[in-house]
Nucleic acid binder design. Structure first.
Lengths: 241, 241
DNA sequence: ATCGATTTGTCCGTATGTATT
DNA sequence: AAATACATACGGACAAATCGA
């Protein structure tokens, strides 16, 4: 029950009450919690106060709301899947080796003038063209990472013609007789952009691990620049030195 | 001005209005924005609606509030400092090379029985002892990373005696004639633990980049396991393959 | 050091809209 | 179509922190 004279904000007390009910199992994963009105009358506080408490718990990922349905207990964090990055990585093969089911889908692509940071990373002239591919990869049917991949158009003539038959990046490289290798990777943490949050089916307040990579073909030409966005609740990335 | 019939939530429109004033310079960094009451009457919306708009902009880091003083325009994000990780890294030297001022401080240390995950990572027996060091590193006087470093006690006899004279990890290794190399690193994103947030002087809702590393001495023995916690608003970590 | 004005924080009440069941 | 649940918006009140006269 809410203590009126404790000086502790009601919404804060209510957050703790709900948290306790989650940890001691009175509220279970995926279960609907009482509606705002019900909580409001049960604990004798205004509905706005309830909304404030629930809002905070949603922002911290402990609950989630669905308009018209209710508010639900979020899934507890699962064990992280460790994805091993190497100079020459094939997502599909790597996941299969780990005994999981990979899936890869090209969500969208277009040919554009290289954005500044891409041109810089690949050492391209300011007006050079690149293919920009949005790729989502799943592990065991769960969204795992979202990549924006930029490929130097000059190195891949005619790609636009058969990119729709896309199966995998390695397949494209094979078709051009290329076998690029990673030369640099940059790791950072952040919140997802909206596009990334949508593709990964995560809330905007869940951190993501972003990995920028630059790949070089066997003849020494920088050919691919990508930014991969990993769900922090599902993925970690490892390297062996 | 707020469009009443557009179907776009008022608080959303107000967010955009404030954002525009920030980007076009009408509101400058550190400057106080009009009070809630002033905005409320200027744009003819309720004070709560103003609070909702401002609240969102605070959560996304564009504004910050000070009770009794007002609401202010936050600093734009600074460029991330890229820290290059290699098999044999000396923080102090690396930062100096980049033309910045490094600083390293041992916040605490103790000798303990190896925690499970540490014993696992270092291949130690369950009851082996390790030194646990809490180290904070600064770049240009700003907290940059916080590390928990675990050193195999068996490999460093008598360390307890002079650890207080700690200058740097490389100095300790030198004293034992060791020159360990990184063998594995694991990257993930998360929120900081409270201890980490305090040491880095960041709020608990700022993501951090965590890097676990295992180091092996030149004779092939695993000797150090560390978890480094980097501020996502200041640091990114790169590797060359 | 005090007081009053200002500003944000918390809380209550109410009404209407929109999505889901 | 009706009921339910969350989303947005308006109104008012008092508390707590800050600042300047």
């Amino acid at each position: 029950m809410i203590e009126r004279e404790s000086g502790i904000p009601y919404y804060w007390q209510l957050m703790e009450i709900i948290r306790r009910q989650i940890v001691n199992g009175r509220l279970k994963e995926g279960q609907r919690i009482p509606s705002e009105i019900e909580l409001s009358s049960a604990y004798r506080v205004n509905r706005h106060t309830v909304r404030q408490a629930i809002g905070e718990l949603c922002r911290s990922g402990e609950l989630y709301k669905q308009r018209g349905r209710g508010t639900f207990v979020a899934k507890p964090p699962v064990d992280l899947f460790e994805y091993r990055l190497s100079p020459k990585t094939s997502f599909t093969d790597d996941i299969r080796e780990a005994g999981k089911t990979p899936d890869s889908r090209l969500l969208a692509w277009r040919e554009v003038t290289a954005p500044v940071h891409v041109a810089e990373a690949l050492g391209l002239a300011a007006d050079e063209r690149v293919f920009a591919l949005d790729i989502r990869r799943l592990v065991n049917r769960q969204p795992f990472l979202f990549s924006k991949v930029f490929l130097s158009a000059a190195r891949l003539p005619g790609l636009a013609g058969f990119i729709d038959k896309f199966r995998s990046l390695p397949a494209i490289y094979d078709a051009y007789g290329l076998s690029p290798r990673r030369v640099k990777s940059v790791f950072r943490a952040s919140f997802p952009e909206q596009e990334e949050a949508v593709a990964l089916d995560i809330p905007g307040n869940l951190p993501v691990l972003k990995v920028e990579s630059v790949l070089k073909s066997q003849d020494g030409v920088l050919i691919e620049y990508s930014v991969s966005c990993y769900r922090s609740d599902f993925a970690k990335v490892s390297i062996d030195w």
